[in-house]
Design a protein around this nucleic acid. Structure first.
Lengths: 335, 335
DNA sequence: TTGTACGCGTTATCAC
DNA sequence: GTGATAACGCGTACAA
């Protein structure tokens, strides 16, 4: 065998002069062991530097104690913070984290490894619409929870920010401030969050009898956001308000408006974003945005996962986490 | 037993009318199987939806095929990108990733889980100076690689950016542009990267016969960076150049200089950072900074890990990755 | 409360 | 090339 042999429960048992099961029991929560043997075992374990082998335990219990967490590339700080929070919470509950960083292309192939390692469940912060592996996991009785997105069929549990109400709140704000020429910079059209933000925004505008003046896709990135902003600001008449599907694009729009068009914000044009990312609060920007309450989203997602794990119930549930409008200086004070 | 039974190699063997060993062999790279039986096995496996159980394999081989990756909270986009790149590379080499998000307090406790899950090796992007668990891992024959930091004793392999030369390059730039009243905003004093950046900067200034005019600690965060910048800009005479140990603090300094002190950059004061984080390149900032070539750092770290894994050699190696000065608009053009 | 014996799913070692 | 059989380290009925 390749690696050098580690200390096993057999070694401990021998030194402590008890059976192997005694060792197993002292390392098992709530098992019957006398204080006497427990002490002997602990002493021996200490002496040898014994640690229970989680792999062997997993094989025996057919549960690895691992939760698969799948995310896309972490360029986007929103997902980085989400992963960080999810991980911390899962760890504090005693679970290990099998991380998968997947772009859409390799998604299904990488999901295989979750199956292979017998994860107890999986939390996905990314998932191509065409993917079937999430369903497959569920078919094996492993709970799956999508965070901040859902798949069309509603067959997989999800926890999302309330994107519709969040952007409706932005619509209200813009209306109250007297804007009427309103444009939208959309994110990735394939994501449910973008669809919901767009829909909630347009619907709410409609209740005021206002229609979107224009719309461009900015793909959630700074570069594409820049391009989209340029197009929209070149229109005549120029929009007097821009709502962007995330902060990165909104900040790009602020840059373009100020640097390339010499516009004053919010006097000449109002700009709002989504996410409440770090730079949004910096003095130079003071961007009005919507906070998704990401920590709470993570907590709700982990709680849902744990509940499903306990009950063994895999049926889909869809939870919504309230978002908060953060009014700053890039939109006019309501008149 | 709890979860419902999955398809095992025994099931496949039975259906294919071969032995379990035959099944194992067809799923093992480079093993002797006739095309005939391989075909039969594959057909049966397909029909039953069989996937080899990685946990069982790990137990048998005493290697999990998992690499532990330990990071601190991902608030800092630098670490988020690093994790993302490391993970992608490791995955493409067929390894799974056991993620640990650890603050200094819980570090050693969480490192235990790496041992428990029999990781093949570990890559650490964080590690408290007092920690012993990294050494412990190595004592078990598991290679450990530190990224962007090292521990005092030089006993653990590391891959770092060339912090000394990176900040020396900044010193050169400031000197060439005629600055003489130079202040430094330091990061976390407990990290090797901060020590090296500071040391390289001060040493190089000394070769010009210039000493640091002042220094404040900014703890790598925007908030503390703001406080530090305020103090330094209140000095009289005021510094004519600020070098900050990372971009986050440098951007905070730019904000303070412009908004609170009404200073023009770089005419009144030059500011430089470190990392080349996203916002550093935005039009509003155009921050002069040092790019650590993070993708290359990750590649070198993964290559080192794989090499150690192959050779079984655990002896420490210390690799340096060159950094690149990125000259932008927050420092004066050299005269 | 303790120990015995078997099972978890796979790989490795042998004979054949 | 193939198929028994013994590890791998641990959990857990079951009997004692």
């Amino acid at each position: 065998m390749n690696p050098k042999k580690a200390v096993s429960s057999t070694d401990v048992a021998r030194l402590a002069e008890v059976s192997r099961s005694a060792v197993s029991r002292t390392f098992t929560e709530g098992a019957y062991v006398s204080d006497d043997t427990r002490a002997k075992v602990m002493a021996a374990a200490q002496a040898l530097g014994y640690r229970p082998n989680a792999i062997a335990r997993s094989l025996s219990k057919r549960q690895s104690g691992l939760i698969g967490v799948v995310t896309s590339s972490l360029e986007n700080p929103f997902y980085a913070r989400l992963l960080s929070t999810l991980s911390t919470l899962l760890q504090s509950r005693g679970y290990g984290i099998l991380l998968v960083v997947a772009d859409d292309a390799r998604f299904d192939a990488l999901m295989e490894s979750l199956l292979a390692y017998q994860v107890n469940g999986a939390i996905l912060t990314t998932a191509p619409l065409t993917s079937t592996s999430a369903f497959e996991l569920q078919r094996y009785g492993k709970p799956v929870v999508l965070v901040d997105r859902y798949l069309n069929q509603d067959l997989i549990s999800s926890v999302s920010g309330d994107n519709e109400r969040g952007s409706a709140a932005v619509a209200d704000l813009l209306m109250r401030s007297g804007h009427r020429r309103i444009a939208y910079v959309s994110g990735d059209d394939r994501t449910s969050s973008n669809r919901d933000r767009r829909h909630g925004f347009i619907q709410r505008l409609a209740t005021y009898g206002v229609a979107l003046m224009a719309e461009e896709s900015g793909g959630y990135s700074f570069e594409l956001g820049t391009v989209a902003a340029r197009k929209l600001l070149s229109l005549s008449p120029r929009p007097d308000a821009l709502f962007c599907a995330n902060d990165t694009m909104a900040l790009a729009a602020v840059e373009v408006a100020r640097v390339e068009f010499g516009l004053r914000i919010p006097q000449d044009i109002a700009i709002a974003g989504y996410d409440n990312a770090g730079p949004a609060g910096w003095p130079t920007y003071q961007l009005t945005t919507v906070d998704q309450n990401l920590e709470e989203m993570a907590r709700v997602a982990v709680d849902l996962m744990l509940r499903k794990l306990e009950t063994g119930d895999v049926s889909p549930e869809h939870l919504l986490v309230a978002s908060t409008l953060v009014e700053r200086a890039t939109t006019r004070q309501q008149s």
